[in-house]
Design a binder for these strands. Structure first.
Length: 510
RNA sequence: GCGGGCGUAGCUCAGUCGGUAGAGCAUCAGCCUUCCAAGCUGAGGGUCGCGGGUUCGAGUCUCGUCGCCCGCUCCA
């Protein structure tokens, strides 16, 4: 598995799919560039998503909101708080913890201690036991509850002041130990802000601190009213958007799986309160179907339902993909309730409501979100298309079994030999077809080698111009996966390629 | 951030005891070639990640730094 992943890494560099960012300066961590073939594949994936979501659903419209947003957006969404974790390491176990979680666990411990006292007493006294009275009078219970309360207050104050030293002091004072090593050998508490910031305005003092959006969803929420009103949208309806998002990951790993700058393809579906779980199930199924329509083996996909839900969700699932390093999240489907719109109402003072003409009343819609990482999608398709085949004659070929509509190059134009008028005819065919398809012309080396070159970048068809072509206007069409050849008339070539390479056949599976 | 591994040509890698860098594939030009790579001739491409130190001399030893991979951690 490791081996395969490594091979995919070098293949994607060697054939112009993915390069490390700023390569000549030793690279920039967890940032990658897409090369001449990668950009095409990625663009096709984005386009296929867009067609499936926006073009095929009349109640879903597109949007392209800016990366910069008013800073209050992130207060409302909860990112300013939630993306700001105080972390501490245990030097012995090498484990990292969130300092706030450690302290909260400690508070919980005191409460549990108090509860245990109550339970013990309940056993002792039987039916006549008055739990509330015991709780308010027993000294040991009171002591533990007091400790919990004191600690809670002290911690709340430190959190409010962003006082990391105080948090560390709390951990020391409370003698909190690492659950793994059991030691109290802690580092300092450090703040990790997962959002990138920059300044709006060129003068430092007048500047406004901005964040690069950590998710695209908020751009949709703040435009909810704009789109609903100008688009005369009626519930249920959706807004779809693709675009870059940025997260300052503590540890970004696994190639383009977790990058600091990445592209999301999100759709927020606004529904009537109470119907959200139906729609959640609907989109959960729809989105898996979309992935399956790409034509990769269905065993690479599975659902992962969340037990632990985020603060805004009342249902959540991932569609996971079997990457070369195991099953990992590819897409998330979340029932986000009315959390986001309500919060924006609160922070902006604007009503984020929909007037329902049937009920003759206004309410804040509920939201079902589908959110897929384009780069992860790219990696899923690339890694599971990659194949090293051993042919009948024992020779090897490396081939990308990309779905034809996604392939960077749809067809290669190859004169069988570089003479006798074949290159000229090939150039003529290339010129005509290039109005419709992304093509590549190649006359260098033996024909077999040229086929292999195209296999390596996933070109589904090779069009070979031979002497017969000059006589009767037919060419050889060689198919990538079967390696079979077929005589095709030049007059029907365009139509044939359109049939095979357009996204229509994939869209029909939806 | 901690621990481990690694960094030499586009890719995969070799490089002995410290003596100014090699292979295969790939690329380019030409030849040959009438359908599945690895036939011939020639060419280009590396201040050995970067910076300091030791040394007469560093790809090799040493320190630092950057980056990559794995584990821990984190992950709306």
């Amino acid at each position: 598995m490791d081996d395969l992943f490594k091979k995919i890494l070098s293949h994607s560099k060697e054939y112009g799919f993915v390069f490390q960012s700023s390569d000549i300066y030793d690279g920039l961590g967890a940032v990658y560039d897409y090369g001449q073939n990668g950009v095409e594949l990625r663009k096709n994936l984005r386009e296929y998503w867009w067609k499936a979501m926006v073009q095929l659903n009349e109640e879903i419209v597109g949007l392209d909101s800016a990366i910069f947003m008013h800073p209050t957006t992130w207060k409302a969404s909860g990112h300013t708080d939630a993306f700001n974790d105080p972390l501490i390491d245990n030097k012995d176990s090498k484990k990292r913890y969130r300092a706030d979680v450690l302290i909260e666990d400690q508070i919980e411990k005191y409460r549990l201690k108090a509860e245990k006292e109550v339970e013990k007493a309940a056993k002792r006294f039987g039916d006549s036991f008055d739990a509330d009275l015991y709780r308010s009078t027993n000294p040991r219970v009171l002591e533990n509850l007091q400790k919990a309360e004191d600690l809670r207050k002290r911690f709340a104050l430190s959190a409010e002041n962003d006082d990391l030293k105080e948090m560390q002091q709390i951990i020391i004072d409370e003698a909190i130990v690492c659950p793994v090593s059991g030691s109290k050998n802690w580092t300092e508490v450090r703040q990790f802000n997962l959002m990138f910031s920059t300044d709006l305005g060129s003068v430092a003092d007048g500047a406004m601190k901005l964040y690069l959006r950590p998710e695209t969803a908020q751009g949709i929420f703040v435009n909810f009213l704009n789109v609903q009103k100008t688009g005369r949208m009626r519930l249920p309806f959706g807004i779809a958007q693709t675009g870059k998002a940025f997260r300052n990951e503590i540890v970004a790993r696994q190639f383009i799986f977790r990058m600091r700058e990445f592209e999301q393809m999100e759709m927020q579906y606004f529904v009537k309160p109470g119907t959200e779980l139906e729609w959640y199930e609907h989109w959960k199924a729809k989105r898996l179907q979309w992935h399956l329509s790409l034509g990769l083996n269905s065993s690479f996909y599975r659902y992962h339902d969340h037990d632990k839900l985020a603060h805004y969700a009342n249902a959540a699932a991932d569609i996971e993909f079997d990457f070369p390093f195991g099953f990992k999240e590819l897409e998330g489907i979340h029932s986000r309730t009315d959390f986001d719109l309500k919060r924006h109402e609160e922070f902006s003072g604007k009503k984020m409501q929909y007037f329902d003409p049937e009920l003759n009343e206004s309410y804040v819609p509920f939201v079902v979100e589908t959110s897929v990482g384009l780069d992860r999608l790219f990696l899923s398709v690339l890694s599971r298309s990659y194949d090293e085949e051993t042919l009948e004659d024992g020779s090897q070929r490396t081939v990308l079994h990309l779905p034809a509509p996604l392939a960077p190059i749809k067809a290669a134009i190859l004169p069988l030999v570089k003479k006798d008028g074949m290159p000229e005819l090939a150039r003529k065919i290339q010129k005509e077809l290039s109005l419709h398809f992304n093509l590549q012309y190649d006359e260098k080396d033996a024909i077999g080698r040229r086929y292999r070159r195209q296999d390596a970048i996933g070109t589904p068809f090779c069009i070979t111009i031979d002497p017969q072509s000059l006589e009767d206007g037919t060419i050889t069409m060689r198919e990538r996966d079967s390696m079979k050849q077929d005589r095709v008339d030049l007059n029907s070539l365009k139509e044939r390629l359109l049939n095979e390479c357009s996204m229509e056949s994939m869209l029909l599976k939806l």
